[in-house]
Structure formats: C-alpha cells, structure tokens
Design a protein around this nucleic acid. Structure first.
Lengths: 214, 214
DNA sequence: CTACAATGTAGACGCTGTCAACAAACCGCA
DNA sequence: TGCGGTTTGTTGACAGCGTCTACATTGTAG
C-alpha cells in the first residue's frame, strides 16, 4: 500500500518486477484476480501507471509469470514432501505428495488461484507451458511408480494419473473457491483439523502401505 | 452474431434476457470468460450498449445467473444419471452420478467454466448461493447412502464427501482448463474413448458393485 | 566523460461498466 | 377506442482500464 518502506524514493525503483509480482499476489489473495489491475499495482507501489509495462509486456504476461512461479513452487513443495518421508516406497511417496500439494495450495491461495485460472491458462506463454509440463511429467512418473508396485495395476495409467491429479486439484478448488463445500469444516482456524482432513482425503487416493506417519 | 434471425427488428427485442444468457455462454465457450463484455453482447444482439443493464444490474449478476443455471443443470444431469440406472443400489447410483456430472461438464464447458470460476463465486448473489447449496446437499445425501452401504465406513463423512465431489470437479478442471493434463488423451474427437476414460476414473471413486452397465 | 541501454513518466487512444435522462412500445383500464 | 403508467431500449456521459508513443532520467560499459 505504501509507496516504499525502506529506501527513499528515487527515479529507479531497484527491483520493480519483483515488487509487482509480490503486490499482485497480495491483491489476488485478498480481492481475487478480477480485482487485479496494472494501474492499481502501480499506484500501490508509487510508480507511474506505465511503469509495469517495462517489466511485463501486458497483463497476461504478468499472470503467466505468476502462474509459472506457482507451478514451480507447487512442484517443489510436492516433491519436497516426498523426499521428507525418507522412504523409497512409491505409495508412501505419492501419499506424501498429495498431502504436500494440498497443504501448499491451501497456504498459497493466490498462486493456486492463478495457476488454476481458466483465462490464465488460455493466454499462457512458453515459460508457463513449460512449467506445467515439468510438473505434470514429474507427477506422472511417481504415479507410474505406484502402479508398478501394484496400485490399481489393471487401470490404464492415463486414467490413474488423471484421477490422482484430480483429487488434490479438485479439493483445492472446492475449498478455496466454493466455500459451500467446506461448510461443515468450520474449523478453518485449526491447522491440526485441516491437516487431518487432508490426510483422510489423500488416504482415499493412495492408501498408505502400513498407515505410515505423514 | 446476427442482429436477429427470425422476427424483424423492432424496438422491443422480445426475450432479450434469454438471448443475452445464450450469447454469453457462446462467448465463454469459444473465447473464455475474460472476453465476455456486456457491450460486446449488446453489439452481437443488435441492441444498444445499455440494454443489457435493464435485465442484469451488472456484469456480476449476469455471471451469477449463468452459474445458477449451470449448477441447476448439472444437478439435473447428475441426478438424472442416477435415475437412469433404474437401480436403488447406492453404489450404482453414485457411480452413475459421477459419470453423469463429468459427461455434463465436458459437454457444457461454458457453464462449467462459469460455475467453477473463482470470481463468479466471489460475487455470487443469493440465487447462486442457493443453487450451490441445493447441489451440494443433494450430492451429500447420496454419498452418505453409499457409506451406510459399507463404502469406506470408517472415514468421516465429511472427508468422503469432499473426496467424492473433488474427483469429477478436478478432472473437469484439468481437462477443460489445463490441456496439458489431457496430453496423452489426444482422441478428444472420439466420444467412445472419452466415455471410457470417464468410467475408468469414476471406477476409482465408487467401485461399482458388480461392474454394472452404464 | 560520453554514448547507449534500461527504466520510469506523461499523455493519448479506444475500450469497458455503469449511471441518468430520454424515447418507444406494451398493457390494464376506462 | 383512448389514455396513463410501467417496462424495455436508446443515448450520452463519466471514470477506470490496458496499451501505445514520445520523452525524461538514471545506470553503465567503453
């Protein structure tokens, strides 16, 4: 909201591109993507209305950059959760990944909203397409690994992969965009309760081998 | 695109509200929600730019009306699929409902895009909220019925319901908005292949009792 | 030190949603 | 039939938006 907090205002901002991305995420978080305007961001950052165009050719490019960041971080969080198990059991890993993705989405609503937004994907630039591709390939490899370890062996991999990706995606969409479906889950404040729910849902996707922790 | 096709143009359009909704759906279908403008619709229908405001207070109201229509039709398609089984087995019904919803979403992309759009839900009016509530209550009752028939009896109903709703929702989001996740499913044209995939995925959510038809 | 590139500014354009004032057509009622 | 009020559509205005162009300032490589 403030023009700048730390350094005194000079002609050059210093790192306007990063500031724009940060401010954009904050606006999407509190007011939604529809409320995002380049001029509004410029005002908030105390620069002229044309300044953002020096860093992003147009609004679609800004949203693509934001979504690219989102997929990259989502993949980090998801694979990070798999590594954190310290296990090489494919079921254990994939279970942790489902929980990890969902946890990340619920804690990074602005980025998730952007990355799941229909119009953002419609105008995706090459960077974004590549980030999506990296994500989906990484997940698919892990899904395939569970199948070779006897998870629904007779189901086509394509269908199993779609199912596996659909659950965290669908849950996040329902919880973040359609509050109605979280009506009974009225303890949003209680992180332990949220964590329980995440685990219960992901258990239905990837039954953990021996009710392992996390 | 044409001003009017049947009746010659007169001062009063006759049924402008319905024409606006229809045209809006067509635009969303081909160009996405972002490309939807009240003035553009008015131009396409051959009326003045202010005419739509007589029927919808603002753009958000138009989108709410469209989304309300979407949820209502989605519920009809979903429950209709359950009835069409002619069975009273809860598993059979819920399986058909999952397929029915997904089939509807893939065949009515404009309405699905609208009903799943974050900003549409943010500015939902009372009608829309009620339609969403009706939908979610109806589904939840069916989910509860499967649980009393031994579907994941030890899982909290809330989590089971979220999981069950998340799959068709997530699949539709992935297939409609993120073409990447349908990369290998390159036979979009072939409806039989699509139908197979729907069934394979829903089988993973509600195992049909004895591989029933439909 | 000086040219050049990068970055920010200022103004303009056409587009948008929305509002208010006005006009035409429909409808109930005599 | 004629008439008054309501509904529906038109027109013009306004501010805000994204984007473009010309210009100003700053950092930097030579």
């Amino acid at each position: 909201m403030e023009p700048m907090t730390e350094t005194a205002k000079s002609y050059h901002h210093g790192n306007l591109a990063a500031a724009i991305l940060e401010r954009a995420a904050a606006i999407i978080d509190t007011q939604g993507i529809e409320a995002l305007t380049l001029r509004g961001i410029a005002r908030d950052l105390g620069v002229s209305h044309g300044a953002p165009n020096r860093h992003f050719l147009n609004k679609a490019e800004l949203l693509s950059a934001l979504a690219t960041d989102g997929w990259t971080r989502a993949l980090e969080a998801t694979l990070g959760a798999a590594e954190a198990t310290g296990s090489d059991n494919a079921h254990t890993r994939l279970h942790a990944m489902g929980c990890g993705f969902l946890r990340w989405a619920l804690n990074n609503r602005a980025l998730f909203r952007t990355l799941s937004h229909p119009d953002v994907n419609r105008y995706a630039n090459d960077d974004l397409r590549e980030a999506i591709s990296s994500y989906s390939q990484a997940i698919k490899a892990e899904v395939a690994a569970t199948q070779t370890e006897a998870r629904h062996p007779s189901v086509p991999l394509e269908a199993l992969n779609l199912f596996t990706n659909a659950v965290p995606m669908g849950v996040a969409v329902l919880l973040i965009n359609q509050a109605e479906f979280a009506a009974d889950h009225n303890d949003w404040e209680d992180p332990a309760r949220t964590e329980d729910m995440i685990k219960q849902v992901i258990d239905l996707v990837v039954p953990p081998p021996a009710s392992a922790a996390n």
